[in-house]
Simulated assay, not measured.
Amino acid sequence: MALLSAVGVALGAPAAPGSAATPPAASPAPGVPLPAAMADTGGGTQLITARARTLGATTGTVNWWQRHNGRWRQLGSAPARFGAGGLAEGRSRVQGTKTTPTGLYDLPFAFGTASAPPGTTAPYRRVGADSWWCEDNASTSYNRWVAPLPPDCAAHESERLAGYPTQYSRALVIGFNYHRPVRGRGAGIFLHVNGKGATAGCVSVPARTMARILSWVRPSAHPHIAIGTTSGPTAVTRY
């Protein structure tokens, strides 16, 4: 499937996508940067977009963008993997479906079993043997990093982060259901390093890409990630 604990305006839930009566959203016209066609980019000057062709897709593309003098410029692109169950609208996603939630989210902080790459300015937590992500709906620590695991958070309902040394060598927490958690919607959604295949609901990228993104992200730029499809009601441009 844990940058920036004070990231400016924090989005606990994605903006609502267009209604069924709205014409299908599509990719921007040639020459128009994707962020310029979006309904919202989070208000900052750094943006990551993660797009799949359809909700059922398990692969797609991650791009990262910088805004300077009012214009967005793409700085990089890489292949991405999504949940084994595809993607799902973030507002109605159900925990345990292995779907990646669509929407626009902040990036609360970074973490990893490896050290932060050179140039990292985001808050970065090193994973230890007792570092967990609590995903127990009954716990007061639901959808939170905990160390050690608290008594009210069942281990079988949570992730021991050190147990995924490849995927969690470096990662960013995606602010899905994070700031005002709704039980049953989902927990532990990250941007992390690729494993062997599709994820359990996160977005994953090659290790080199993850290191580049972490070195690039700046808390002062209020970075966000927009996850969605290339067209339709869950198009990235709708969020």
Rank of each mutant, 00 (worst) to 15 (best):
G228Q: 01
L75F: 07
P223Q: 00
L55P: 02
L107T: 08
R180K: 09
G188Y: 12
S27A: 15
A138R: 14
P206A: 14
I213V: 15
G112Q: 00
V7K: 08
A187H: 07
A221R: 14
A57P: 02
L172I: 07
A16L: 13
V193W: 03
G56L: 02
K98G: 04
G86S: 09
G228F: 01
G163H: 11
A147M: 10
R180H: 14
M1F: 13
A2Y: 09
V7A: 15
P28H: 05
V173C: 07
V193Q: 07
D152I: 00
S19L: 14
G119S: 00
P14C: 00
G85V: 07
R185G: 08
F111Y: 06
N63H: 15
G119P: 00
T230Q: 10
G96S: 09
A207D: 14
S158Y: 06
A110R: 03
G201V: 05
V94Y: 00
Q167L: 05
G12Y: 05
R238Y: 06
L34V: 15
G184Q: 04
V205I: 11
L104N: 04
K98Y: 13
R160N: 14
A154S: 13
T22I: 08
N143P: 07
L214C: 09
A221K: 11
R144C: 07
H192W: 09
S115I: 00
H68V: 15
E135I: 06
V205Q: 12
A122H: 02
S5T: 13
V94S: 10
V32T: 12
G43R: 05
N143T: 02
T121W: 02
Q74I: 01
P24G: 06
G112C: 02
G43F: 14
I189W: 00
A25T: 05
E159N: 07
K196Y: 13
A129P: 09
Y142R: 00
P123F: 09
E135R: 14
P206T: 10
R144H: 13
W216D: 01
Y178I: 02
A21T: 14
G197C: 05
W72G: 09
S5N: 10
H224V: 04
L3D: 01
E135G: 15
F190Q: 06
A78N: 07
I189D: 02
G56N: 03
G128Q: 08
D136P: 04
A84G: 11
A187I: 10
C202D: 04
W216Y: 11
P223N: 02
P24Y: 00
